[in-house]
């Protein structure tokens, strides 16, 4: 009877140990991975009915700097990237980004157009902060790739 109790106790202890170790490991992985939102935004002077508008936070920030008053979200991709890993996301037919999770919240974003790398920007991206890559588009409009955590 005592032997059975000891075995049971040992098994429970082992299970608890495994749970703790595994959970800790999982927590560790989760702590190092980051989630980056990558939005493809169109900035125009004219209102486009039926198009999805960007959040007020982004619109206000962009409108403060640029002449366009209307900003529409064409794509929104959520990238969960583990530490020291890279993920690629296609935002339009030609435009794609490659995001690398560097240490201490630092990310490196490479912008590609038609397979050709245009630039790479590296910076620490904090919660509530935005990294924006932008350029001209057809007519009186502009493209914006807005990255945030």
């Amino acid at each position: 009877m005592i032997l059975l109790r000891n075995r049971l106790f040992n098994r429970i202890a082992l299970l608890m140990g495994l749970l703790l170790f595994g959970g800790g490991g999982l927590a560790l992985v989760q702590a190092d991975s980051i989630t980056v939102n990558a939005r493809l935004v169109l900035g125009t002077g004219k209102e486009k009915q039926g198009s999805k508008k960007v959040s007020d936070s982004i619109r206000k920030r962009l409108a403060k700097v640029f002449k366009w008053m209307h900003y529409y979200q064409l794509t929104n991709k959520k990238l969960t990237i583990e530490d020291a890993k890279t993920k690629t996301s296609k935002l339009s037919k030609n435009a794609s980004i490659k995001v690398t999770n560097q240490k201490n919240g630092k990310i490196a974003v490479s912008l590609f157009s038609g397979g050709k790398m245009l630039l790479q920007k590296t910076q620490t991206l904090r919660e509530g902060h935005y990294m924006v890559l932008a350029g001209k588009s057809t007519g009186d409009s502009a493209w914006f790739i807005v990255l945030s955590k």
Binding site: K93, A95, L118, H129, A134
Partner: peptide
């Protein structure tokens, strides 16, 4: 390049044109 006063937004403006509306539709 442009950084907002509170450093909450950094912008890199490229002199590079992309027809994203057409690209987006094709995607």
């Amino acid at each position: 390049t442009y950084n907002s006063d509170d450093d909450s937004m950094s912008i890199v403006w490229l002199d590079y044109s992309m027809d994203i509306q057409k690209d987006y539709m094709e995607l």
